[in-house]
Design a binder for these strands. Structure first.
Lengths: 177, 177
DNA sequence: AGAAGCATGTAATGAGTTACATGATTTG
DNA sequence: CAAATCATGTAACTCATTACATGCTTCT
């Protein structure tokens, strides 16, 4: 059901097409909070419209359909946000890999950590560039995309630093070369 | 497929029953990396055994079956660990709720962020105490649990700082009182 | 004897992935 | 006019959840 609320949440910000929402997932929400692919998004949008939680407010070029959230949709979202589940679902494939990585030998583990740290640096650089150049963020400082970007600015350095800490620990316990 | 590797990873550490593994998920892995329920775990264990990646090494009281990883299972796990997906699946219902929170009014949003930041501080304090007192960490510096603890030491402050940043942004855009 | 915890499972349904499929519009 | 990007979908399959179902063992 979470995908449904992710979509309603994004549509609270502004009306959008399935394509727009798919891009929003790729950039922000999907990286940190909830991953979904375009086909699943389109299917869920059709179901939301059928349930009266969203409606098509515009049809543009190339079959583009712009969806808006309805009052019923807004009510449903607020209801969900105010409920506190005892146990929430967490699935993070990267985290799982990093947890299980010590099944490999120290050399290989070290390389994975070094690569991971480098990737976090690249993601951070990409995000910083995006924040500096895309007017989306200055125009909508309260939007989910902006919030996600700020979250990324805190998370990427933290994950990079953790990985480099671990590399240091491996090197100290088993000096290389 | 990730559940399959999560189970193989845990069985690399030591042999265990479905019940043991289910508890391991509830305590650790499921909180940070990969969530799964008992019935899914039992089903996957049966499939793993059918595929020759694990085997039943002991049958105890109350139908208890202890599984061990086989050589084929170990090979499969290492193979998976060495593959690097371009972008891995992330699903975190708590994170999603935090991102969508601004659909509520600023007052409610602010309170949730303040509570979240405080909770991160508490988790960090608890973890720091645990790292200083529990010999588990000094005795097994390379273990799964130690790696996770170090990860927490970097993540909790990052999430706390992000939440406090957001509180600051809310206050600046709509001063309280 | 009763409660708490141990231990495993099935069936139906819903969520999510993979592969396939198509075509329009804009940009260089 | 070719390439990139926009834009939406279906079908078959696998993964995951919910509800149901059973019985044993240990502790008090």
């Amino acid at each position: 059901m979470s995908l449904r609320y992710a979509l309603l949440g994004l549509l609270t910000d502004r009306s959008a097409s399935g394509y727009d929402l798919s891009r929003a997932f790729d950039r922000g929400l999907g990286r940190y909070a909830w991953h979904a692919q375009h086909n699943q998004i389109y299917q869920e949008l059709n179901r939301l419209a059928a349930d009266g939680l969203t409606e098509v407010v515009e049809e543009g070029a190339r079959g583009r359909k712009t969806y808006a959230i309805t009052d019923a949709g807004r009510a449903d979202l607020l209801d969900w946000l105010r409920r506190r589940p005892a146990r929430a679902v967490v699935r993070n494939e990267w985290m799982l890999r990093l947890f299980l990585m010590s099944a490999l030998d120290p050399e290989e583990t070290r390389q994975i950590l070094v690569d991971f740290a480098d990737q976090m640096d690249r993601e951070l650089a990409e995000l910083t560039t995006l924040l500096a150049t895309d007017t989306e963020f200055s125009d909508h400082p309260q939007s989910f995309g902006t919030i996600a970007a700020h979250f990324g600015q805190r998370m990427y350095p933290a994950m990079r630093d953790w990985a480099r800490d671990e590399v240091g620990r491996i090197d100290r316990s088993r000096p290389p070369g």
